[in-house]
């Protein structure tokens, strides 16, 4: 039955060759990608359909080979890479595309000053160990603020997401207790708090609930004019998230495959809760494309996103790639082949 359906449909699919590509994954870069693909469509007539189903979803769909490429804010673990290699014989390339920061956002009536947080304090709040806003641990960091005796309501994402990944990745690095009891992943077992599906609900609940604290991407906080706190980095400075501070955090030595976590950065003026967002593709594109022409279109698209596409970043408050990362991204893309043909090299040019 399955086979019959499959046969019938593939014959059909072969007949209909359309200039369209499909991607899925991370929600965080969705506004950026949507804008990019809109521009790309005007430029080339090629329809790129990117659906923001979440980073984990993107990774899963890529491993099910239902999409041409995936978007993700979390990189694959060594185990996952091995798994996919065993199943398909291919490697998943992580091509860095943009930078993002995740900020603690809160709702405290009567407090207009930006609050300071440290990593361990945030971990304690999200572990439900610090329960009220006038806790000495918070007061100590913010001597000038008049903190109300409100109970703290923790708000987190209920759907697994790359934003969550960056946030808990940071908490795992700065708090041993967090690393041991909760850990990091796109969805974790939250010790406390309220879960909102999607960034909007987290933002919405925080805005409506006095005493709430949550985490959202910097752009969401900016667009919705939500107060967000400064976080102390490794060098001991309290840094308010900004594009510059995010890029600063990313100026680290990149490993060869660009799979790197830049949270808790050692850079002295870098913002510590930041991360790359990647486009994931197979190095053997025949796994997810039906013809060489289609495979070429995938590479051309990603190459465009790394060159002309990068101009769109700033207008939408995304951090553009630092030069090191950009060069690494292009060299990764040039590894792409189609049935052994080095189409990546031909298109990227080196």
């Amino acid at each position: 039955m399955k086979k019959l359906v499959f046969l019938l449909l593939t014959t059909f699919a072969g007949l209909v060759f359309a200039q369209s590509l499909t991607g899925a994954g991370a929600t965080f870069p969705y506004p950026l990608y949507a804008k990019m693909f809109d521009e790309y469509n005007k430029l080339t007539g090629i329809k790129v359909n990117y659906q923001s189903i979440g980073s984990g979803g993107g990774i899963r769909q890529l491993s099910e080979r239902t999409v041409n490429f995936a978007g993700s804010d979390a990189f694959l673990s060594d185990e996952q890479m091995k798994d996919i290699k065993a199943k398909t014989g291919a490697t998943v390339l992580h091509i860095p595309m943009a930078l993002g920061a995740v900020v603690p956002t809160y709702n405290l009536p009567g407090v207009s000053k930006t609050l300071n947080f440290t990593g361990p304090l945030l971990a304690d709040i999200f572990l439900n160990k610090v329960k009220t806003w006038n806790d000495p641990a918070i007061q100590q960091l913010n001597p000038d603020a008049k903190l109300p005796p409100l109970p703290i309501t923790v708000v987190h994402r209920s759907d697994g997401s790359g934003t969550t990944f960056i946030w808990v990745d940071y908490l795992s690095k700065v708090s041993r207790e967090w690393a041991q009891t909760v850990g990091r992943g796109t969805s974790v077992q939250w010790p406390t708090g309220l879960g909102g599906k999607g960034g909007r609900l987290v933002a919405g609940v925080v805005r409506q609930t006095p005493g709430a604290i949550g985490y959202v991407e910097l752009i969401y906080a900016k667009q919705n004019k939500m107060p967000h706190g400064a976080v102390q980095n490794k060098a001991g400075r309290f840094v308010l998230a900004s594009l510059a501070a995010t890029s600063e955090a990313a100026s680290v030595v990149l490993p060869g495959d660009a799979r790197v976590s830049i949270t808790d950065t050692a850079s002295p003026s870098g913002y510590p809760v930041a991360g790359f967002t990647w486009i994931l593709i197979y190095d053997k594109l025949e796994l997810v494309t039906k013809s060489e022409a289609e495979a070429r279109e995938v590479v051309k698209l990603i190459n465009w996103m790394l060159t002309d596409g990068q101009k769109i970043h700033e207008t939408l408050d995304y951090g553009a790639l630092p030069d090191v990362a950009d060069a690494r991204a292009k060299s990764l893309l040039s590894r792409v082949t189609y049935q052994g043909k080095p189409i990546g090299k031909e298109i990227v040019g080196n």
Partner: peptide, 28 residues
């Protein structure tokens, strides 16, 4: 969407379909 027991009347909770909808696309 919180599965932290015990549940309270006004507080967050979760159901079987809701967790499927929340985590299905994200389960790696």
């Amino acid at each position: 969407n919180s599965h932290k027991l015990p549940y309270t009347l006004f507080g967050p909770a979760a159901t079987m379909p809701s967790v499927i909808a929340n985590e299905f696309t994200e389960a790696v």
